[in-house]
Design a binder for these strands. Structure first.
Lengths: 224, 224
DNA sequence: CCCGGAATTGACGGGCCTGTTAAATTCCCC
DNA sequence: GGGGAATTTAACAGGCCCGTCAATTCCGGG
């Protein structure tokens, strides 16, 4: 099987001008363009210009603007999912594991502003595209399972409160982490706060950990 | 002076067809349209259709699409600022006052989805319009002063920790409150969670209070 | 009664954008 | 080396949208 795949891929690779290379470059450019200007604001011509191709070629590969956008969504979600899978928490005490999850999530948002902006754009569109695309609906997020296991361990140790829904915790972490990226402009302008500064990032990230952990520890070990 | 203003305004009111009535209806329609479709997605013709006027008339009143959008932003920010001014907290114990602030903020976002969507849209545009409009830059938000006073009282009572920045607290509250509205579509789809349900709103709102209050109480009363 | 100015309309011009289609180019395989 | 498929290009058509401008309606005051 490996041989078959190899030969097939080799055949596909040596032949034409630059199909998959072009495809990959177009997708990367599309991620940047859609993240920067939103679905409607993004221009197919701009994506073509970024990749030294033409609008017709992009349609030849992806079919339409919406299809291209869906490919973008699929890609960035796959990336965060893969990154989440890389987290190794089982050897950490529950509190430290929580802190690690928060740091990872917070830093991922700060470092992947494109992803955050795409998520926000899709929500502003009321999830219209996502809804109609099955492979995006069934996309699971390992972070919730990880969180669930950590929380269960903390509860078993008597360190965490008992009535905790992992999804609620993830939502709190995601909300606090995304806000810095999503609302940095209005919030920074209104409250004279620079939100991109690295020092502030570390401080706020720790505040998120503290918020979650103090809440998790609240009235822990009470009689069940 | 009052007489002058009165007579001038009376003269302005009785005269023509429906200038300020039209103006108000256009602004309301613009809020809905911009909130629903974003700046670029919004159509001047759609706003005109909603108000039984024409695109030319809207430009006659507001000058351009961008000017109209700025008037929209100014309006919705003025509204939340006025609502925040109505909060009366001085007679409440600090913890109860915090809970009240959280409830107010959370409910305001849930009940004013247009406002939230406009804020998000402006952030997606990197605050481009807001930056260039002085009256939006100098807009202050009473909620931070209220929060600061409440926190100071809680610290004086020894109930709240000492190193607290009111803006940080407001950011946490705003982040958790906005997330339900802003990310309801992707989050709901990915995690099979209905986020509009009223019961869930009350539960999540209380979680926000608990998060903030347990954090505020953490290591309070320690030696200064 | 008529006039002057505010309010309102219809139409034009220019720009940008997307999807398609037919033609041209390139490269692989026989 | 030639057939043929895969890739790429150039140009077209249709749609939407915005700002403007001259023309028209309407109202109130002299």
């Amino acid at each position: 099987m490996t041989l078959q795949v190899t030969s097939a891929r080799a055949a596909a690779m040596r032949k034409p001008k630059a199909p998959e290379a072009n495809r990959a470059r177009i997708l990367a450019a599309a991620i940047a363009e859609f993240a920067s200007r939103g679905y409607k604001g993004a221009s197919m011509d701009a994506i073509a210009a970024r990749t030294h191709t033409t609008r017709a070629l992009i349609n030849y590969y992806f079919g339409s603007k919406e299809r291209l956008y869906l490919a973008v969504l699929e890609r960035v979600y796959a990336e965060i999912r893969d990154a989440e899978r890389g987290l190794e928490l089982d050897h950490l005490p529950p509190a430290a594991a929580i802190r690690r999850i928060v740091d990872f999530t917070y830093d991922y948002y700060v470092g992947h502003e494109d992803f955050v902006r795409l998520v926000v754009a899709e929500n502003q569109a009321r999830g219209r595209h996502m809804k109609r695309f099955p492979s995006l609906r069934t996309l699971n997020r390992p972070i919730v399972d990880l969180l669930g296991r950590v929380i269960a361990r903390g509860q078993a140790d008597g360190d965490f409160r008992r009535d905790v829904d992992p999804i609620d915790v993830h939502m709190a972490i995601a909300a606090l982490g995304m806000f810095n990226v999503t609302n940095q402009y209005t919030f920074g302008t209104l409250f004279q706060r620079e939100m991109g500064g690295k020092g502030n990032v570390a401080r706020r990230r720790q505040m998120v950990s503290d918020l979650v952990l103090t809440w998790l520890a609240e009235s822990a070990g009470q009689p069940r």
